[in-house]
Design a protein around this nucleic acid. Structure first.
Lengths: 204, 204
DNA sequence: AATAAAACCGACCAAGTGGTCGGTCGCAAA
DNA sequence: TTTGCGACCGACCACTTGGTCGGTTTTATT
């Protein structure tokens, strides 16, 4: 019990610091030693808990990244009434969080998707699954929104979801290049404009 | 003269192969030796022509990446009549090119922006400049579009440009995860929907 | 053919890299 | 107090990295 607790505690410390550095400097550009130095731990400790650097990163995906994306972008829109409004608010919050984080290196998910693409199929798959989870979620609430009369029936929910996700990943990438405040404002403004064009007009 | 030609030829060969590999495997994940092996050249040849790996990459930006972005995304929309239609067509072409490229690893510019962000300020600056060039260009034609009665006067050109670029960078990133055909179609469909909402309605 | 500069070669270097392994330490059960 | 084991240490290994440098080959010029 207690032992298990200690084990988990150390692993979590490693994962948290690992994600921090991987996010900041990139996976391939961060050595295991870098992480260990930060924690004053040794190689032995690392390879006692994890099989490899890859295995370590996968555990980070499952324990930290999934949760992060879920709590920030998926959970806030699940089962809400007006999908368009809900998505708008969710984006506002996400952008605001990013904007006020002085150590912003972009959207975790898309950064890693870019880095691992074509280089590590296994990790790419895990990341892709998170993206899909998000995508499916948006599609679902849009479909429900049609039934409930919030969303125009003729729109292609899958396409809207893809477009929203694309634009979000895009701005989040651009925001790190400075001017995040302005960009954030401009982005939200245009998202609103776009979302408005999806509204169900003239309810019978 | 002739000497200069040979020099340029070798340098270009290195740059082309370099970009290919950097684009495919990432800058930090591609060694100078990797590039040299591909060309059957030696370290000596490389460091005779370039001061460092960084210097080499900067020359690639200036000689290849700038031109690529310019010819694909900037030049096609310069000085055209109807900005919204022009942007639409330009995106259609860009997406089509990407879609039919079986070795697609995303949008060159945004991939490198992500990779170098926070890791190499000098290179980031060069890349950012390309992005700005593109941005300014879109803003310019949108403003002209207002004067010419194609674009609604109340829209924020800067915001529209940022939004368009964001979404483009986003899809291009997602396209490499498979389903590029579907994604491409969905994206263009939504871009059209969005662009339509920017049109100048009811001309006097 | 002689020459000199330009272009290229490849062994070498120091500084890392991910990963291994024999050992140590502290704590809980006996 | 002894024992056993989970947690951790750190020297070490094979290998790769960007970069150097003394030297050789190509090439154009005379």
């Amino acid at each position: 019990m207690d032992k298990n607790l200690k084990r988990m505690a150390t692993m979590q410390r490693m994962q948290v610091t690992g994600l921090e550095l991987f996010y900041k400097k990139g996976y391939y550009n961060t050595s295991v030693d870098d992480i260990l130095k930060e924690l004053s731990l040794s190689k032995g400790a690392f390879y006692y808990h994890f099989q490899s650097k890859e295995d370590f990163f996968i555990s980070i995906i499952q324990n930290l990244i999934v949760r992060k994306v879920y709590s920030m972008l998926i959970e806030p829109i699940e089962g809400k009434e007006d999908p368009l409004k809900t998505i708008e608010v969710c984006f506002e919050n996400a952008m605001s969080t990013a904007e006020h984080n002085e150590l912003d290196y972009g959207f975790v998910l898309s950064n890693f998707m870019t880095e691992f693409n074509g280089r590590n199929e296994l990790i790419s798959k895990y990341l892709r699954d998170i993206y899909k989870m998000w995508q499916v979620n948006i599609v679902t609430i849009l479909q429900k929104g049609k039934t409930d009369g919030y969303v125009a029936r003729h729109i292609d929910s899958e396409a809207v979801a893809a477009f929203l996700i694309s634009s979000y990943m895009g701005v989040r990438m651009l925001m790190v290049e400075g001017n995040s405040k302005t960009l954030s404002y401009q982005f939200l403004q245009q998202v609103r404009q776009y979302l408005k064009s999806l509204e169900q007009r003239e309810l019978v």
